[in-house]
Write a protein that binds this DNA or RNA. Structure first.
Lengths: 179, 179, 179, 179
DNA sequence: CATGAATGAGGATTCATTCAT
DNA sequence: GATGAATGAATCCTCATTCAT
């Protein structure tokens, strides 16, 4: 990827800045363009699809998740690791509405996104398996299932107040324990 | 409400039958009309708004939920009651995709729907309070929060396979227990 | 015309009563039917076209105009005759919004309406000609032109307050005088 | 307002050209688009509402009226001024069917239109007041009332032949004189 | 006769996407 | 590269009129 021309970089930044103020599930490219003070075409040049824009929006959050996964992998205590990780995942998903679609999407536009998701998935799996081996989490659950449960919790929180996050996470963690 | 004329009843039935084959969240009235072999106007006559149609679609399911709530209220064991009820709620929501929107909607088009939701809500509350008093469910949760959790579980199941329902429900029930 | 069955007469009366509460220029037959508590079909049976309904609505007013025209024809003073007549015409048109369309329409649905319009037209012509002969009204105007002027005045009054009627009529009468 | 791109200008011109061939009171945007050989969206881009299109259609005529009002204001003879002005107003309204709605509308989409109407109204008022002071026009009439009378005359002419314009205007002018 | 369900053309409006400038 | 005008399918909804019941 060649370095972006300075004006192109500015456009890109403005687009992202504006897009972040919108509901990721209902991005109107024309609106974003107008508010960002650029032409629609410019938006399409930078982000060929809506999904590409959403990916870009989640980039930082995805990166933070990757770091947190690494930390969880490095964490000696299996229980602390899985606890922290689920906590982090839920927090980040709630913080950045576009994250869930990006994580769940089978197709990634951006290679960095794919790589990040790849590492996140693998790390998550390690943490989960270790927790299961340690008897902290039911053995009959796949990584994907746990991820879906986190998404379900995000959904539940979004139906009510943000403060529900705490209890819901406790419920999830308690529920995941064997027996 | 006068009894429906036979032809009107047939139209209504056809519309509902067709609508049931569509995603409740993306009902295109024109499509429904065409597939049902009736004019658009007919659809609008029977269902002034999309929500009215969704309500009609969920009518039976809502009724079944009402009955199940009554049974749960009548059930002597607090634990069995809440278990059965959550089970039923999740099952029905998964069976009928339009149920969650109807349950969550603040405005009801149909009076029967409102009455049903009213009774369901009250019954649910009773069952929950009893379970909390019996020490089967955390005391810090409101009825609404538990309902949201069920919706979250529905969401989680929909992201994967229908067979996830069992484990997820167990997780929810286990997670709801105090301590 | 055979005597109407009592229920038919009642329907007709109800329809007219309701229709009178609507803007004659924007009659929605379905609305009228619903508000009148009859089926649309009934409205169509009584009034095959919207115009037929408007004619029926104006029937009484048309009759009153006919009487006033007769009085004007009988009035000895040419000036008083034309003055009273224009006054009456404008008043009635303002009172009954459907009157202008009926008077201007080339096609009449109802024979009585045609007869009334016929007599009104003839009488109006007589009154006007006499006024012109007496030097009270410009000689270069046809009956139709004067009628159009009255319609124009109605239009002008409708753009503002009903109280404009007085001055506008004076202006019309003054303007019609020769020289 | 940036200068219009040449292609946009062409579209705009075509739309206006086509719209001018329609009854201003019954503009069907889809029809206009089709006849103009442009997409519906293009019409909406240029003219967000039907009224905006009508305003654009009347732009030139409105401008001509503005000029004529200025001339009337500059005219030394109060009588000539009001005579010419009423003449001009009636002529232009008859020429451009959309003018009356634009003049009467309380809300203007375009700032130039508002400014033009503003100046026209003020100038008209000056000319009228001067005519009243000179004893050429009844003192009991407001500007708005005189405007409504012109609209009434337009209506009257439209009911018959265009050649009625002359006599009707004379009648109006004569009628407006005091006593 | 009365009913009112059904019709479906008609009209308004939006928005993702393309492409000429 | 950037622009934003143009596109037009898609969708919604209304209402005058017909006709089966």
């Amino acid at each position: 990827m060649p370095a972006l021309r300075s004006d192109a970089a500015r456009s890109r930044a403005r687009i992202l800045e504006v897009a972040r103020r919108h509901d990721p599930g209902a991005l109107r490219l024309n609106d974003v363009a107008r508010e960002a003070g650029v032409g629609v075409g410019t938006v399409y040049r930078h982000f060929p699809t809506t999904h590409a824009l959403v990916e870009a929006l989640t980039r930082d959050t995805l990166e933070r998740l990757r770091v947190l996964v690494r930390e969880a992998v490095a964490e000696p205590s299996p229980e602390t690791a899985i606890t922290n990780l689920l906590h982090a995942a839920l927090d980040l998903q709630l913080e950045e509405g576009g994250l869930q679609p990006v994580l769940l999407s089978a197709e990634d536009e951006d290679d960095d996104v794919r790589a990040a998701k790849q590492e996140i998935g693998t790390g998550f799996e390690q943490v989960l398996v270790r927790a299961q081996a340690a008897g902290v989490v039911r053995r009959d659950l796949s990584t994907q299932q746990v991820e879906h449960l986190v998404c379900g919790m995000e959904h539940a929180v979004r139906l009510g107040a943000a403060s529900d996050r705490g209890p819901y996470l406790e419920i999830l963690l308690a529920g995941l324990r064997p027996d």
